[in-house]
Simulated assay, not measured.
Amino acid sequence: MSSLLHLAAAVDQPGPPDAATCTELALLAERGGLDFVTLDDSSARPGPDALGVLSGLAPATRRIGLVPTVTTAHGESVRVRAAVAALDRVSRGRAGWRTDVPATEGEARLCGRRPAALPETQWREAGGAAGAAAGPGDGWEDGAESRPAATGRFPDRDRSHHADLTRTAFSVRAPSTVPRPPQGHPVRVVDATDDHALTVAARYADVALMRATDPAQAAGVRDRLRERARASGRDPATLRILVSLLVDLGDGECAARPGHGGGGPRPTARGPLYRGGPVDLAELVTAWHADGVTDGFHLIPVEPRRDLERLVNGTVALLQHRGLFRTFYPGSTLREHLGLGRPAHRYAVLTDHGRHPAP
């Protein structure tokens, strides 16, 4: 479990996302020092996709991480990886991507699949895409690009590699045409609510989002994530686990209503909901983190402008005053915000016989 408190927020809006409003909300979250913001997406929703919106606002922000939802189950993993890597470059190392699958039959048909696959199949394919995504991104080793004055920029052939991947639903064999993105691999985020999604999160995610209405439930999900991470051969310490909560701070500084705040969030169809004031929310965040059941929280404002402003100016300010949350960004990349190292290049292991993929 990470010793630092991590906080993230959604910048979702009713209806299609508005770029100007998303930028305003992202800058507000950045002022509070939050690790990252998320923007949800759906193939059935009109308007620009989340990846495009966050790519457009990246130059307006300087430090906060940008994590769009990307539906991977029916997309080509190389194209998905290239698009997220482009966000990582334009943001100078602040990109992540939230893996998702089509939620309805209509969305699946928009992706070309009739009828929709079972959730187990969709998440197995999404997991394959998440695992395969690192391969094409490791086509060029760090330092492989050169810039001769006469010919321009090209890679060192000894340090460039083909992607050669075979998965259940797809296979990839192609040369990489671009260098690694700044973070090596952009941060992978998975909502572990569904059991199949939990398995994908435990094996591939850098950040797992979970829903819980009390510390005991959160501890149970945390333990399952850790156990499956170990079973997949990874160190559970490399996985950040955040509780995802809807927050309604419309009551200002008033005490949380019964069933909220100190009594725990209330379950709703959209997920656990906290309704109360910023101070009580700070108490909840402090208590759950002190119990060790979570590395932090992913907070989803019910009223985007109002609740995010009260979150930053009230809850976050109080946590900073208590020394529980950062007052400035010590690094520049999303991985640095999360306390995660930059992944080694899979071909960077040198032996007497040349370069071989890292284990």
Rank of each mutant, 00 (worst) to 15 (best):
V312Y: 02
R109G: 13
G250H: 08
G52C: 07
P267N: 06
H356A: 15
S332Y: 05
H74T: 01
G354N: 14
A82K: 02
L340R: 01
V316P: 01
G106L: 11
A174D: 00
L25S: 00
I241M: 09
W288N: 01
E76G: 05
L338V: 08
R45T: 06
D18M: 06
E76L: 08
R114Q: 07
L319G: 07
L281F: 07
V247T: 13
T104F: 05
A149R: 14
G259P: 05
H162P: 00
A85I: 01
G250D: 08
A50F: 10
V247D: 02
L198D: 00
G276A: 06
H321V: 04
G33W: 08
T21A: 11
P357K: 04
R203S: 05
L27M: 09
A192Q: 04
L245H: 08
R310F: 03
R180T: 03
G276I: 06
P115N: 07
G276M: 08
P68H: 02
V189L: 13
G250N: 10
G56A: 14
A130K: 02
E303L: 07
T238I: 05
G233N: 04
E120L: 11
A192P: 00
T327D: 12
R266K: 10
A129E: 03
E24Q: 15
L324G: 03
G131K: 01
G52K: 01
A218V: 14
T72N: 01
G354F: 04
L87Y: 02
P278M: 07
D223N: 11
